Simulated assay, not measured.
Amino acid sequence: MKTRRHASLHLACIGLLASTALLALAPAQAAEAFKLAGKPKIAFIYAATVKDGGWNESIDNGRQQVASELGYPIAVAESIPEESTALKNAIDLYVQRGFNIIVTTSFGYSDGVLEAAKKYPQVAFLAASGTTNAANLESFYPRTYQAWYLAGIAAASVSPNKTLGMLGGFPVAPVNWDINGFALGAQSVDPTIKTIALYTNSWWDPAKESQAAKSILEQNADVIANNLSSAGPFTAAEKAGKASVGFQLDMSKMAPKGHLTSVVFHWDKYLVPTIRKIVDGSWEPNQYGAFPGLAEGVVDITPLSDKVPAEARAKIEAVRAQIIAGSFSPFSGPLFKQNGEEAVAAGAALDDAAIWNMDYLVKGTVGSVK
């Protein structure tokens, strides 16, 4: 079940690389408040099981929080294939049953949910990792690189060998920005530290991920950061007596001795206030979709391990506050690519379009996006 979701994210990232900014493929045609007809009834549609140990489970945790905080009726559909007919049938059934707020949870639904939004203008649609938008449809995805920057600070603080490693699926923008954020956070502690980036060319392959982690550990890495979902890299790091950083969910149970922190989603921080706006009549979907981050609480890190020293903890808290306040960006200049080319000039910072088109790794990383 995980394979289908991860394959869809791969396609998502490739599609987004072709755009000039997040979710700019289909901007909304109107910037006016949406008016919900009838009492709110919410439906979540998943492409796989919700207990997948990663993406879907993190969103379903958000759904449960929505139910707890708002108390509206919520229905769930799992394992709905990422093709138009299956999605259309699921949405049609929900609308016929009076559901008027529908949350889709996969890139593969992007075109289908746009068709549904046009067909049902009285229904509000929210699309996780989607690429389409309309007057009654808003896609959303978080600024994960912000939290990875903080995780990089933690990792550097426990690395006597000045060598870190990070696994990613494919060399596409959302993976590249996570690796770069992690590497730059580490370099803010020690400019000489290096980050070994290794792409598995798969979104779900526990055996390959375990082997990749072992390969990095053999290159003297003290910390393994995993941008994927399997437990393999954490087990490998734990057996080697090394530290690790998780992703999507709190992975501390996977590596109780070496886990430093995990970069996690808090989808309710977007869903709850957005649904409230839909219900009270003040919701105006962003024409390019929502791109929330630390400031909105949609992405963050879990409590730090006791292994992280006090100085690093203080630095993480200070930088976190600056990012939330908008006074600092992890991608502030001067910033250089691996080949020495300047990516961002001093005094500037990457804009959203450049972030979503990030096709390079930064200076101080080892590995190739080619």
Rank of each mutant, 00 (worst) to 15 (best):
G152A: 00
L93D: 10
S305E: 08
S244D: 12
S159H: 14
E69M: 05
Y360K: 03
A128T: 11
Q96S: 14
V95F: 06
V344G: 11
H266T: 07
L228S: 00
M251G: 05
L87S: 14
P206M: 05
L167Q: 01
S84I: 08
N176E: 00
Q211I: 11
K208P: 00
P206E: 01
T274L: 00
S139I: 00
G169P: 00
A325V: 06
V158E: 11
K370D: 13
V158L: 04
S215W: 01
M254W: 12
K119S: 02
P160M: 01
A116N: 10
H266M: 06
N89C: 02
S129F: 05
G297N: 01
E218C: 00
Q29T: 13
S368R: 15
G130R: 14
G38D: 07
V263E: 07
A221S: 14
S332E: 14
S188E: 15
N89I: 02
G108V: 04
A128R: 08
P40E: 03
D178Y: 05
T365V: 08
I45F: 05
G364Y: 12
K242F: 06
A128P: 00
N180K: 07
K41N: 11
P256Y: 08
L294V: 03
L36D: 10
P285I: 04
K118H: 12
N89D: 04
P171N: 00
C13R: 09
Y199Q: 05
S129P: 06
G181T: 01
R276N: 14
G53M: 11
